[in-house]
Design a protein around this nucleic acid. Structure first.
Length: 903
RNA sequence: GCGCGCGUAGCUCAGCGGUCAGAGCAUCGCCCUUACAAGGCGGGGGUCGCCGGUUCGAACCCGGCCGCGCGCACCA
């Protein structure tokens, strides 16, 4: 039974699961390694966290990469879209720890080994979720070859890189002030710190008495508790207020320690009193100053976020906030507080836990970046790696230019444990544990981004020279959001150049971040997040998404094509707001294409048996047989859309690719071509002509479907099948992308049709404005040139009947037998309207008068422009000529309207 | 503070030196016209953030404001 005949709507929920199964079964997504990276096409997916569920960013990025992969696959390139997941150290560890707490136990109770085993279990249970979700949006990732950053083989690559860099002196261990996350109890890198504005604190002014007993120096601080770790007070060398005091000693209140007054240009004289307490143990700037002046470092806050023994008996064990209160109270009691005021400033928070970062000195592993950064800067400057949009490469270069050492150790259990062993004073760095007894491995693990930095080559089997590596590295494109340009992209470039011997990818596409409709970030906690699967299958629409144009309640099941189309149509070179309308537009396009196919199949294939079911051979692919100007026109438009779509995809302009396709299908193909062609499909049409038209229609439809496939793969694959092409030729996903041929462009036909379309629009607008009964045929006379081939079509679609006149016959009575009662301007002339019941003469007169006024205004404007000497003298000749032509045209149109409408 | 970007129709956005500034959605009117009413056809709707400059000509280029977003750096 013919599905096309039965269903008037495209049903994604029925079709999509079936289509996905066929793609996956076909082996399409898994290429065997062969050929060269230049011949082949590869993309390494940004590995989602194993804990992850598909969010809007994945859906957009997945759509983008799939469009690229499908487009190039259909152009005959061996295409591998490398799949895998990231172990996501902190995120995953937290998730499993939360689970343990629900179970009434903790990671510490379990112990390291058992805990890690639990994480693996968790991963086995839940790790596949996001992979299944990628399948739902039609992503043709290589599911047969999935990687994980903690796989044995991948881990070996990670350890090898560590050992190599250690041996080359780029990785070292040091006591340094790091960003400490007291919630997670681990160090984090600079990139994982987020500065938050508008934090309200109290700024305390505290008096430090001079040891000489001869006065005091007042300092200002928002963190009085860190006073316990002060080791100096600094003033600006030029500050006259303190000129005589530099080198003298102060007595630290509550502690009694002697602090030297030092001079350093870092201190701002204007701020507060111009005297700065120096706390090297708990402030990054102070740490630097202390290094310069060889000051002592004292730590009073521990890794657990509590005050240490060094803080003194009275404060040890307190939380930072408790300590602050007690210190302030004690200072108050002893008369050291000089002032307190409200102070609004920015404060560092951990992106990972949301806790306030506690800078403290800690023994950590670091990686020197300057030597790695230089070549990574070079390849972008030289264009070997192109970043799109261009503006992002400036950010990339700026960041790399000022790069600082990277803290790569994390005090976690889930991750790649640092391959360094200690025994007494001995240290051994190797990919495997050293021989002999008594060695203990460093307990820390590597920052997750350390392993992700190897992604494009470690997934392909590096360090071994695998066939995959030889066939697919370097990859072609890396598509990602802006926020991980430094965190990930820059580091991949550095590591790729250092270890894989080449750039990891040639193009970086930085895509939009999709915000909630109100401009806020999409986030679960704000309630602004939205699950792409809810758009595909129909699910709850958050309140914030209830726009005026959409009823509240659940999303309809838009389907995967609609979601892909919508996200691509929204995307841009900057952040964009989510727009449900664009998703709906995608759904409309899928349905439109389905119905256009249905129309063609039922009309062209309708050979009497009435089942409308395509069979093999029925819609045999043949050459188009253009017979009319509209045939030549649509074939020409088809060339244009094929070329445009491909160029837009290659230029990473996905919104234009998607919307251009929509315009072609809705406008050129359905609104115009199919409507123009309907009379030629009537039952009494000449069978030979009908067959010729059928061939043209099928050709256009087939190429349109193929061209649209990378963007809306499901509906197009289904239609390919319904038309019988799948049986004969296999999957559309594996077919060839139609290649535009400029020789097939037909500018005269395009010009002619453009004119006809304008005329039809003008006639329709006129009918509407004068209140002609809908459907009534208006008798008229065509008095315009350039409609030899299209007059009948214009009359048909505008519901006019043209008597006699062919452009030369005017109103001066040459045998039409009637005088026009109204005149309508169309390109190249006018249409005279003959009296009939359908026309209200008063309305027609008013309309005609309006048209004349409009034309007169435009003529004045054009005339004025040409009368302007400056314009004629200085504007390019072509522009002036165009303006003259326009004026001529307008004048002849006006003249046509001046014909006496005698009645 | 420095840097980047953005303010165009009710909404989301195109256009980025030369015809009357466009699209989708929304809105209004008409229509069950041989596929699609989750349709079709048509209409209305804009001081292109504000001020000044360059130019024959500016939504578009330049300068200055105002508003918004992002990145980097921070002054305790």
């Amino acid at each position: 039974m013919g599905a096309l005949e039965d269903r008037t709507r495209f049903e994604p929920s029925e079709v999509e699961p079936r289509i996905v199964r066929r793609w996956l079964r076909s082996g399409l997504v898994h290429p065997e390694p062969a050929g060269t990276p230049r011949e082949n096409y590869s993309i390494a997916v940004p590995p989602p966290n194993v804990t992850g569920v598909l969010h809007m960013g994945h859906a957009l990025n997945g759509s983008i990469q799939d469009v690229l992969a499908r487009s190039h696959r259909m152009r005959g390139r061996r295409t591998k879209w490398i799949l895998g997941t990231d172990h996501a150290g902190i995120g995953t560890q937290r998730k499993v720890e939360e689970r343990l707490i629900e179970e009434g136990t903790t990671r510490v109770d379990l112990g390291r080994e058992a805990f890690v085993a639990r994480v693996w279990e968790w991963r086995a249970e839940h790790g596949g979720q996001i992979i299944d979700q990628f399948k739902r949006i039609g992503a043709t990732l290589d599911y047969a070859d999935e990687r994980f950053t903690m796989d044995e083989r991948y881990a070996q690559a990670v350890l090898k890189v560590f050992v190599d860099l250690y041996e080359q002196g780029l990785i070292y261990r040091d006591n340094y002030l790091v960003n400490w996350d007291p919630g997670l109890r681990t160090a984090i890198s600079d990139l994982e710190v987020e500065e938050r504005d508008g934090i309200v604190d109290t700024l305390y002014s505290i008096a430090y008495p001079l040891a000489s007993g001869d006065g005091e120096v007042v300092i200002a601080t928002v963190r009085p508790e860190t006073l316990l770790a002060d080791t100096a007070v600094a003033v600006h060398p030029d500050d006259e207020r303190y000129a005589g005091l530099v080198g003298q000693e102060l007595v630290l209140p509550l502690v009694g320690r002697r602090l030297t007054i030092i001079a350093d240009e870092y201190v701002k004289q204007e701020f507060g009193t111009g005297a700065l307490k120096i706390t090297p143990g708990h402030d990054p700037n102070d740490f630097e100053i202390a290094n310069k002046h060889a000051l002592e470092r004292i730590s009073v806050i521990g890794e657990d976020g509590l005050m240490t023994a060094q803080a003194g008996e009275r404060y040890a064990g307190l939380t930072v906030m408790q300590a602050r209160e007690r210190v302030v109270a004690d200072l108050e009691a002893q008369g050291f507080i000089r002032a307190r005021e409200e102070y609004v400033h920015t404060v560092p928070f951990s992106q990972r836990s949301g806790e306030r970062v506690e800078p403290l000195i800690s023994l950590q592993w670091f990686m020197r970046m300057d030597e790695l950064a230089a070549p990574a800067i070079e390849v972008v400057k030289a264009g070997r790696v192109r970043i799109h949009p261009e503006s992002q490469s400036k950010r990339y270069l700026d960041w790399l230019g000022e790069i600082r050492p990277w803290c790569i150790s994390r005090q976690l259990w889930w991750g790649h444990q640092i391959p360094v062993w200690y025994r007494g004073t001995e240290t051994c760095c190797a990919t495997t544990a050293p021989e002999g007894d008594g060695w203990t491995q460093d307990p820390d693990v590597l920052d997750t981004w350390f392993s992700s930095a190897l992604w494009p080559f470690a997934t392909l089997g590096w360090p071994e020279e695998t066939p995959d590596l030889q066939a697919f590295y370097p990859t072609d494109v890396l598509s990602t959001a802006r926020d991980i340009l430094f965190l990930w992209v820059a580091r991949m470039v550095m590591m790729g150049l250092r270890f894989a011997g080449d750039v990891p990818f040639c193009d970086v596409y930085v895509h939009s971040i999709i915000q909630a409709p109100d401009g806020r970030r999409m986030s679960k906690s704000l309630g602004t997040g939205i699950d792409p699967l809810d758009l595909i299958d129909g699910g709850p629409r958050p309140p914030v998404y209830g726009s005026s144009s959409r009823p509240p309640g659940d999303f309809p099941a838009y389907g995967a094509d609609a979601v892909r189309f919508g996200l691509l149509a929204m995307s841009s070179t900057q952040d964009v707001r989510f727009s449900e309308e664009k998703i709906a537009q995608g759904q409309a396009l899928a349905n439109k294409l389905y119905n256009a196919t249905r129309f063609v199949a039922l009309r062209v294939g309708g050979d009497g048996d009435g089942d409308g079911a395509p069979r093999e051979g029925r819609f045999r692919v043949g050459a188009p047989q253009p017979r009319t100007v509209e045939d030549r026109w649509i074939l020409s438009r088809l060339q244009a859309i094929e070329a445009d779509t491909q160029a837009r995809i290659d230029g990473f302009d996905f919104a234009k690719a998607a919307l251009g396709l929509y315009d072609f299908v809705y406008g050129d193909l359905c609104d115009w071509y199919l409507e123009l062609v309907k009379p030629r499909l009537s039952d009494d049409a000449d069978p030979g002509e009908r067959a010729a038209l059928g061939a043209t229609l099928l050709h256009v439809l087939r190429e349109t479907i193929a061209t649209a496939h990378p963007i809306i793969p499901f509906v197009t694959e289904e239609l390919w099948d319904l038309l019988g092409y799948a049986d004969a030729e296999g999957l559309l996903a594996a077919a060839s992308l139609p290649q535009s041929d400029d020789a097939l462009r037909d500018p005269p036909a395009e010009a002619e049709m453009e004119r006809a379309i304008e005329a039809i629009k003008a006639l329709r607008a006129w009918r509407d404005s004068v209140g002609v009964t809908a459907g009534a045929i208006v008798p008229g006379v065509l008095r315009a040139t350039g409609y030899d081939a299209t007059a009948a079509r214009v009359a048909g679609l505008a519901r006019f009947s043209f008597a006699g006149g062919d452009g030369d016959t005017g109103a001066d009575g040459d045998g039409d037998g009637a005088e026009p009662v109204a005149t309508i301007a169309i390109p190249g002339g006018a249409v005279g309207v003959l009296a009939s019941d359908a026309v209200d003469l008063g309305a027609a007169d008013r309309r005609l008068e309006q048209a004349r006024e409009t034309l007169a205004r435009e003529i004045d404007r054009a005339h004025g422009k040409l009368a302007n000497e400056g314009f004629v003298a200085k504007a390019p000749a072509a522009v002036v000529a165009a303006e003259r032509a326009k004026l001529e045209r307008l004048r002849s149109e006006l003249a046509a309207l001046q014909q006496p409408a005698g009645r």
